[in-house]
Simulated scan of single mutants.
Amino acid sequence: MAGLPEPECNVEIFHGQRFVARVDLLYRHARLIIEYDGDHHRDADQWSRDQVRRAELESLGYRFTTVTARDFDDPTALLARVRRLLAQGAPAPA
């Protein structure tokens, strides 16, 4: 855990009664979503769906960071990124 708070895993996000997405990791207090994108996310159709999904989540006030296998080449940098995002806290309401 590297000193980070424990995120919620595989969380379903709704807008009212409408299902929006199931996210990999969620820091609810910071409204921060962390998604892991494997190689299948490079497919044009999947990438397009990912962009629509991300835009919808951002429109609901969530912040978003994507992690790929390359991020694990330098886990110290990845952890620093997550710490910075958590330190920023939740975005102000629109």
Rank of each mutant, 00 (worst) to 15 (best):
A44M: 09
A69C: 09
A92E: 11
A30C: 04
R63S: 14
C9M: 14
F64D: 00
M1K: 11
T76S: 15
E6K: 12
G38W: 01
L26H: 02
F19N: 08
E6W: 06
E58C: 12
Q88K: 09
Y62Q: 05
D39G: 01
R54N: 13
H15C: 12
M1T: 12
L78E: 03
A69V: 09
F14S: 11
Q88S: 13
V52S: 11
P5L: 04
E8W: 05
L78Y: 02
D45E: 15
N10R: 15
C9V: 13
G3R: 03
D71K: 02
R42Y: 05
S48R: 15
V67F: 03
V52R: 15
L86G: 08
A2E: 14
H41L: 06
E6I: 09
F72G: 08
T65M: 14
M1V: 14
V23P: 01
A2S: 12
E8V: 09
A77Y: 04
L85R: 14
R81V: 11
D50W: 02
R28D: 06
A90E: 03
V67I: 12
D50Q: 03
H40W: 05
A87Y: 02
V67K: 01
Q51F: 05
E12A: 15
L79Y: 08
I34M: 07
P75C: 11
E56D: 05
R42N: 12
V20S: 02
Y62E: 03
A55F: 00
F14E: 10
R18S: 15
V20G: 01
R70I: 10
W47Y: 13
A55N: 00
P91G: 03
A21K: 03
M1E: 13
H40T: 04
G89F: 08
Y27L: 10
A90V: 06
P75I: 13
H41A: 06
V82T: 07
F64M: 12
L4N: 01
L78F: 02
A87N: 05
P91W: 01
C9N: 14
F14R: 13
R28T: 10
D39K: 01
V20N: 00
L85A: 12
P91L: 01
R70H: 14
H29L: 11
Q46I: 13
H40Q: 08
Y27F: 12
I13T: 04
A87R: 04
T68H: 03
L26S: 01
R49H: 08
P91Q: 03
Q17R: 15
V52T: 11
R70L: 10
E8S: 14
L57E: 02
V52F: 05
D73L: 13
V11F: 00
G61I: 07
D39M: 00
L85F: 10
L57A: 03
D74T: 07
S59L: 05
D71V: 09
L32Y: 00
A80R: 06
G3P: 04
A87G: 09
P91K: 00
V23Y: 00
T68Y: 03
R49G: 10
F19K: 06
P7W: 04
D39H: 00
V11G: 02
T68M: 04
R49V: 09
L79R: 07
V20H: 02
P5M: 05
P5E: 08
I13P: 00
R53K: 05
L60V: 08
R42L: 15
Y27G: 12
E8T: 11
T66C: 14
A69G: 15
F64Q: 04
L86P: 07
Q51R: 15
I34T: 07
H41I: 07
D50V: 10
